[in-house]
């Protein structure tokens, strides 16, 4: 081990900067956050070790469950337009039906790189009760004024869903488009020669071949869903509890409300952060597992390799034991 370190000294030195920075700014906070999650500490006065109390209190807090439910509702409903819209747009742009592909790519991608605060302020105006443009058309078409951001709080979610979907459709589209362009033209041509329709090309060729990319985007936007904070926060006029009836309270808002932005309950907030991380890991694993195709030759080969390696190791161990 030591010898190897010495032998590859130069190589280790080249990769060191990343690991040093990661250790200071990544690893240390992660570990320290875990340590903090067992304490009650406001960053000002003495720290008190309280074991698992933070975790227990979080699971007992009705607001936590409300935040989780809101986050899931917003995330799941928003994923329908994100996935379908993204795929459809990418397919249309890829099929050479439209000119100026790059212009459309840029336009659809724009929401992703625009400041969330700026977008939220614009949407807040649009969803306004008395002067909002959406209610203006609503009244024009003979409807009633709808109090989107106030009322009983149930409609804030819809405003957030619209913003969330609007933002992520473009991102997904760009990734899908890149994926589609990575699919060999030969396959398309073969399909054309065989007389496949556009729908068949989409569902029989595009989507199956894009699967790894779709999984990637689902995991990305799931993380985006758990990180959702700015949009509901601004829409509710910076209300830390998500507006009326906690309608816009998301998990990330619940966390940041405790610390560091809305308060200084560092221990409690660390515990929430770890719970959210667990959710993200669980969902990512579930998405990966749930979408593995058991009849895929690659998958079968991989499983075989794993089994073989395991057996070899067991055999070696037995050999070692026999020697002793």
């Amino acid at each position: 081990m030591r010898k190897e370190l010495k032998k590859y000294r130069v190589a280790y030195m080249y990769i060191a900067p990343f690991f040093i920075l990661f250790a200071i700014f990544g690893l240390f906070p992660i570990v320290y956050g875990f340590y903090l999650s067992f304490f009650r500490w406001d960053g000002m006065t003495a720290m008190h070790f309280i074991g698992l109390e933070n975790y227990i209190n979080i699971f007992k807090d009705v607001l936590f469950w409300r935040a989780l439910r809101n986050t899931l509702v917003i995330g799941i409903i928003a994923h329908i337009p994100i996935l379908l819209g993204g795929l459809a747009l990418a397919f249309i742009l890829n099929s050479k039906m439209v000119k100026g592909q790059n212009i459309f790519k840029t336009i659809y991608f724009m929401p992703m790189v625009t400041s969330a605060v700026a977008i939220s302020i614009v949407f807040q105006q649009m969803f306004g009760n008395n002067y909002g443009v959406i209610n203006y058309f609503n009244v024009l078409l003979g409807g009633d004024k709808i109090n989107w951001l106030g009322g009983d709080g149930s409609l804030i979610k819809w405003a957030v869903i619209v913003m969330f979907a609007w933002k992520w459709i473009g991102w997904n589209m760009v990734i899908y488009l890149a994926g589609m362009q990575g699919i060999s033209n030969d396959i398309y041509e073969a399909a054309q020669i065989d007389g496949a329709s556009q729908t068949q090309v989409m569902f029989r060729i595009c989507i199956p071949l894009l699967k790894p990319i779709i999984i990637f985007t689902v995991i990305q936007s799931t993380i985006g869903m758990f990180n959702l904070f700015t949009e509901p926060f601004i829409l509710t006029n910076q209300n830390w509890n998500g507006g009326t009836n906690n309608g816009g309270l998301t998990l990330m808002m619940y966390l940041l409300n405790k610390a560091p932005q809305g308060g200084t309950l560092y221990g409690y907030a660390s515990a929430i952060a770890y719970i959210i991380t667990m959710f993200i890991v669980l969902i990512s694993v579930a998405v990966n597992k749930g979408t593995t195709d058991k009849s895929d030759p690659d998958y079968i080969a991989q499983q075989d390799m794993k089994r073989m390696r395991k057996e070899r190791r067991r055999a070696e161990r037995q050999k070692g034991a026999a020697k002793v």
């Binding site: 302020i121 105006q125 009760n129 008395n130 002067y131 006029n237």
Partner: peptide, 14 residues
């Protein structure tokens, strides 16, 4: 009452 938060942009305009 206008039924909007006193700190909202709508209220400011009003």
């Amino acid at each position: 009452d206008m039924n909007v938060d006193m700190w909202s942009t709508e209220a400011y305009a009003a």
